[in-house]
Nucleic acid binder design. Structure first.
Lengths: 148, 148
DNA sequence: AAGGCCATGTAACAAGTTACATGATTAA
DNA sequence: TTAATCATGTAACTTGTTACATGGCCTT
């Protein structure tokens, strides 16, 4: 797959709980190639460059799965604004909360749709992982509703 | 306050939903000083350098509050591992989930304690913001319990 | 007063984001 | 066939992390 294809697929499958940008993918592919984890295929149209995983790449992936995942860095700009609530007008805060609710509602609807597809395709692991995102957005909405 | 003091205070008040490192604080302080938002005080022991906010700094803070907060980047390494569940042994996964539960339980207990203090101090905005973190950890624990 | 400890700050590195340049494809 | 659009990849920049060096402080 090419960088663009990988990005699109990863975004669909993982994007709900693992944010990425295209640029990261494009940067890593040559790096992975230099380590022998992927190899370049024959270039396609639009100077697109497909890659395929090597046996060493598969081994590296399996090894990566055994590493300590660590824990997430929580960083919520809405909560941060809420913490400085005393320095803002209530109208400002209300608008911030309203916009955040809108965002979480949309994200929730989207990931529910995607998860349904995954289940239909029998992609259980992906669906289970997506459930985290569903729970996350629901929790965020519940918080926003409680404080508004 | 010095970089260390600012970091300690920010971590206590905001750390539950806004991750930071000392190094960021130390880097920003000279940058803020060059913009006239803070000014250096007289150096203390251990080559510590206190800063104080200027009127221009207060204005910049107020201005910052009016900017679009955007939305958070969700990035959960446990969900990512869950998505690749098919490539791992169930023992591996179980251990990952157990450790994650432990982490969220500890974080939850800690932030509850901190929030209680904030309420006692009448720091309502900080307490409300912390409620986000409480909801977050509860949601994560509920997810982990459901999938284990 | 000597040793270990801890807080201070720095600097090198890694990762993430934004903005740009290029060239096919599509549609008018 | 020309203009607009969109996907591809790159490069510059910003932000975040990790590792390091220094020097007071506290304990023994």
């Amino acid at each position: 797959m090419t960088g663009g294809q990988l990005m699109a697929e990863a975004d669909r499958r993982l994007g709900a709980y693992w944010s990425m940008t295209r640029s990261q993918v494009y940067r890593e592919l040559p790096a992975l190639a230099s380590m022998g984890y992927v190899k370049m295929g024959r270039p396609g149209p639009r100077s697109s460059q497909p890659y395929s995983i090597t046996p060493a790449g598969k081994r590296a992936f399996t090894r990566w799965l055994t590493e300590d995942p660590g824990h997430e860095a929580i960083r919520n700009p809405i909560a941060l604004r809420a913490a400085f609530g005393a320095y803002q007008t209530s109208a400002q805060l209300t608008q911030t909360y309203a916009r955040a609710s809108e965002y979480h509602n949309e994200a929730l609807a989207h990931i529910r749709e995607v998860t349904k597809e995954m289940k239909k395709d029998g992609d259980d692991s992906a669906a289970v992982a997506s459930d985290f995102a569903i729970g996350y957005h629901k929790a965020a909405l519940a918080w926003l509703k409680a404080i508004k």
